[in-house]
Design a binder for these strands. Structure first.
Length: 307
DNA sequence: AAGACGAAAGTGGTTGA
DNA sequence: TCAACAACTTTCGTCTT
């Protein structure tokens, strides 16, 4: 397949931090949210076969290894019924024995994984989680299951916790709210198990940055790219002035978007922004006030108001 | 009438003794 | 284990457009 020239820089802002969202097939600039290319196809290698010998050696046999199947995609099933009639009695006895062992070999953990991963798959596609993060979530769940951390907790909550952790690790955070809506679970529960698995599995997760959320919130609000980059700009400045530490990243992202929208004449109400960001208007107001003060934006806002 | 603003009281989680 | 604490929420009244 023919590839276009390789992109390494964002044409909009020049940043090199690009993020390939596989689930959407888009390359997005992490700094300003600019969508650089859409409808990308899998770049991974594909061989062509010229004769049968090459076919043997090059063909990628079976599906790739994956953590999202309970046996990592390597399932081999021992055949049953149908062909039994053609067997000699001794062969038949052997097959029965093998089948018996196969079912025995699947430990309680394996069986549990099967259900959990099915659930994970369902939720991940519902929430549009990129494949990499889904894989990671599956791996985390597997590790948790093997350590016996699921005991005493509902399977769903551990799946949710793993998914939440994986999303954060990959810089594509979903809010606790979103995840809790996809499961019949409440936020508290998920947060709790999330922290628990992180502690037990020694998973280090950096606090999320508001920038990670800006992109998603903005697209839900249908804001123009220019406004989005303005919001990112604002967050960067706020970071420098150290008014972002200790504050909820979602609140900051929301406030930055609100300000950016005001400044570029795409006015959104606090209510609108608050809803998609999952925070209250009050929080936006508080952050907004800080932003105006510290970034000296009052004059600009006033000008807009007068128009 | 809707949106923005702010005060007051409440919530859940972290921290430090 | 408990209390202090910061961030955030909920609620509600007031002001502005």
């Amino acid at each position: 397949m023919k590839m276009g020239k390789k992109i390494s820089k964002c044409p909009e802002c020049g940043s090199k931090k690009l993020y390939w969202d596989r689930s959407r097939g888009e390359v997005i600039c992490k700094a300003c949210g600019f969508v650089i290319e859409e409808r990308l196809i899998d770049f991974s290698q594909e061989w062509r076969e010229f004769d049968s010998e090459q076919g043997e050696s090059r063909r990628r046999v079976g599906s790739p290894l994956t953590f999202t199947k309970h046996d990592k995609g390597l399932s081999t099933k021992i055949g049953k019924a149908g062909d039994l009639t053609k067997m000699t009695p001794s062969e038949r006895r052997m097959y029965y024995r093998m089948r018996k062992w196969q079912t025995r070999i699947s430990t309680p953990i394996e069986r549990n994984l099967k259900f959990a991963l099915a659930e994970l798959k369902r939720i991940a596609s519902f929430l549009d989680v990129p494949k990499i993060a889904e894989e990671d979530a599956a791996m985390i769940y597997r590790m948790a299951a093997e350590k016996g951390l699921v005991r005493g907790r509902s399977m769903e909550s551990v799946v949710a916790g793993a998914l939440y952790a994986a999303c954060r690790r990959h810089g594509v955070p979903r809010t606790l709210d979103e995840i809790s809506h996809a499961f019949p679970l409440d936020k508290k529960e998920i947060g709790k198990t999330y922290r628990f698995i992180c502690r037990e599995l020694r998973i280090r997760i950096l606090p999320t940055s508001p920038q990670d959320y800006v992109q998603r919130f903005a697209s839900e609000l249908k804001l123009k790219p220019k406004t989005v980059s303005k919001a990112v700009e604002i967050i960067k400045k706020a970071n420098k002035l150290e008014i972002t530490s200790g504050k909820g990243p979602m609140g900051i992202a929301a406030a930055a978007l609100y300000v950016a929208a005001l400044l570029s004449g795409e006015k959104k109400t606090q209510r609108d922004v608050a809803d998609v960001a999952g925070v209250t208007e009050v929080t936006i107001r508080n952050r907004y006030k800080e932003l105006l003060e510290k970034l000296k934006l009052e004059d600009q806002i006033k000008k807009i108001r007068e128009k």
